[in-house]
């Protein structure tokens, strides 16, 4: 049994208009988008539901085989990324199902607005990850970047092992489909290396 060491909701995530533009692939930063972005930020204010749950697991690396206690996986890139770490923190973050509902609501009335809300969701879940990462960094000396299934040679199918072993759905409402996609769609799972506790 692995229980989470942290289950948390972030009520103060503020979507960043600049990042929303970037996620919308608005490379020119068109000012005509500003009112729409403001409108979407307003509409999503009560709907954002940014949460995380996190677990500490043991770590053993043998060549390209990474053993996380509850499962092991072959991945050179993950092994390199976790080199020198003693444990890992595995966490799931989400911006909540409200974003999916709103995207669906607008998908045929205004695909542009749907795109904007989708981008807002992407920014919110990234900010949630950053915030958690930052908080963790105050307690632990962390390894390299957070690493998710699908990065480098870490197969996306490793999500299945994560969701099977950790009760992510129970704590965050994030579920995995048979097609290995996460619902709510604005969700992230990631593995972080932990070197030591900050004394």
């Amino acid at each position: 049994m692995i229980l989470p060491f942290c289950v948390k909701k972030y009520d103060d995530i503020k979507p960043d208009p600049l990042m929303i533009k970037r996620y919308m692939r608005d490379r020119a930063g068109n000012p005509a988008m500003d009112p729409l972005i403001e409108e979407c930020i307003g509409e999503c204010a009560g709907l954002l539901d940014c949460r995380i749950c996190a677990y500490i697991t043991p770590l053993n690396i043998d060549g390209d085989k990474v053993d996380l206690g509850f499962a092991s996986v072959k991945s050179r890139d993950l092994a390199d990324n976790l080199a020198g770490c003693r444990n890992t923190v595995i966490f799931a973050a989400t911006a909540g199902l409200g974003i999916d509902r709103l995207v669906k609501r607008y998908s045929d009335i205004s695909p542009l607005k749907a795109l904007c809300i989708d981008a807002l969701g992407s920014d919110s879940v990234e900010q949630t990850c950053d915030r958690f990462n930052e908080e963790l960094g105050k307690k632990y000396i962390l390894g390299n970047m957070r690493f998710s299934p699908g990065y480098g040679d870490l197969p996306i199918s490793f999500q299945k092992a994560i969701f099977l072993a950790l009760e992510i759905g129970k704590y965050t409402g994030v579920h995995l489909t048979d097609g290995v996609q996460m619902v709510p769609s604005k969700s992230v799972t990631a593995i972080l290396g932990v070197k030591d506790e900050i004394s």
Binding site: K21, D26, P111
Partner: peptide
């Protein structure tokens, strides 16, 4: 032009 502009015009 980029995707949002294309969509603005399309709408």
């Amino acid at each position: 032009a980029f995707l949002p502009e294309l969509l603005l015009s399309a709408e």
